[in-house]
């Protein structure tokens, strides 16, 4: 069994009447990319701030690398790298100076630091921008600089709080690939986001937060298996009769059928070869059909089914 890098038990954080974290329990294992997924205001950043001892909490415990996390636990802090939601770099320093500064907060030895800075610049693809001031960088490059500043000292635990907000798709992919690379090199990553596609893409285990509580956790497969919704099939079909619609609804694993404007939408609760069975029915009854779409359940479906509300627009809808 892998060693637990972060252990959160019954964490409660209140802002006066507002309960930001409500008996939150989480554990992150060494070597994994752990996703914290939740809508805005669900408590992701508060949880991160508590892990980092930036916030005092009312109840519970946070242990990092087996030690209780405190503001003065510098030995543990040495092993943590952070890139927060808002870009936090000095506008007066160049890209290289910024990375050197943040690396210097962890590493005093000059030669080692120089090497770390070079590695971070190469990792983030900022080599040609090293003399640029942050104000001259695009949003994507700025995000990459923000991450480079957080990981330059080669930490064992990397905490990334929504690092792809307001980033173009190209930079987003580069950031996500970078995170996977850091993970392959041995870093444990805690990744918070409200973009489910990103979390699905890179995270091994995921915890879904809502109103400060962890409402579900596990691998994405485990999470999807928790809900009734399995495959979602949509077929362009003309002239479907109500009787045929009813018969389709009686096929195996089908639990919901909707037909509107020539589009048939079928929801299946698990099972295999659902599409094949449906198309077989279409063939037997000589029903003509056009395009066919089959979708596996998403984390949004999981969130929707558990909380009754949407998690967030898909990545394409990001700002």
């Amino acid at each position: 069994m892998a060693e637990k890098v972060v252990e959160i038990e019954n964490l409660v954080k209140r802002y006066r009447e507002l309960v930001a974290l409500d008996h939150l329990c989480l554990s992150v294992e060494e070597g994994e990319i752990f996703g914290l997924l939740g809508p805005n205001g669900s408590g992701k950043t508060t949880a991160i701030n508590c892990i980092l001892s930036l916030l005092k909490f009312d109840k519970g415990s946070v242990r990092v690398f087996g030690e209780e996390m405190r503001p003065d636990n510098y030995r543990v802090k040495r092993q943590i790298g952070v890139a927060m939601q808002n870009v936090a770099v000095f506008g007066e320093l160049t890209v290289q100076e910024n990375i050197d500064y943040f690396c210097g907060l962890y590493i005093r030895e000059k030669e080692l630091r120089r090497q770390c800075v070079e590695d971070a610049i190469a990792f983030s693809g900022l080599s040609e921008f090293r003399k640029f001031y942050p104000g001259k960088l695009s949003g994507g490059l700025l995000r990459r600089l923000n991450i480079a500043c957080g990981v330059a000292h080669k930490p064992k635990l990397i905490i990334l709080d929504e690092p792809t907000v307001a980033v173009d798709p190209q930079s987003r992919n580069r950031i996500l690939e970078g995170i996977q690379k850091l993970n392959r090199e041995g870093a444990t990553v805690i990744y918070t986001s409200h973009y489910m596609e990103e979390v699905e893409q890179i995270c091994g285990r995921i915890a879904i937060l809502d109103k400060g509580r962890c409402i579900a956790s596990g691998t994405k497969e485990e999470l999807k298996s928790m809900i009734k919704t399995g495959e979602k099939i949509r077929i362009e079909a003309e002239g479907l009769t109500p009787v045929q619609e009813k018969e389709i609804g009686e096929l195996r694993h089908v639990y919901q059928v909707g037909y509107q404007d020539g589009m048939l939408e079928i929801r299946c609760s698990g099972g295999k070869h659902n599409l094949a069975h449906i198309l077989e029915y279409f063939g037997k009854n000589e029903i003509g059909f056009g395009r066919v779409y089959a979708e596996q359940p998403t984390l949004n479906d999981v969130f929707l089914e558990i909380t009754g509300k949407e998690l967030r627009d898909p990545v394409g809808g990001q700002q």
Partner: peptide, 19 residues
């Protein structure tokens, strides 16, 4: 102001350099 910026301050506090 640069050092006391909320995000910058948070980042500095996360570091292993003592307060």
């Amino acid at each position: 102001m640069s050092f006391q910026d909320r995000d910058m301050d948070g980042r500095n506090k996360c570091a292993s350099m003592p307060f």
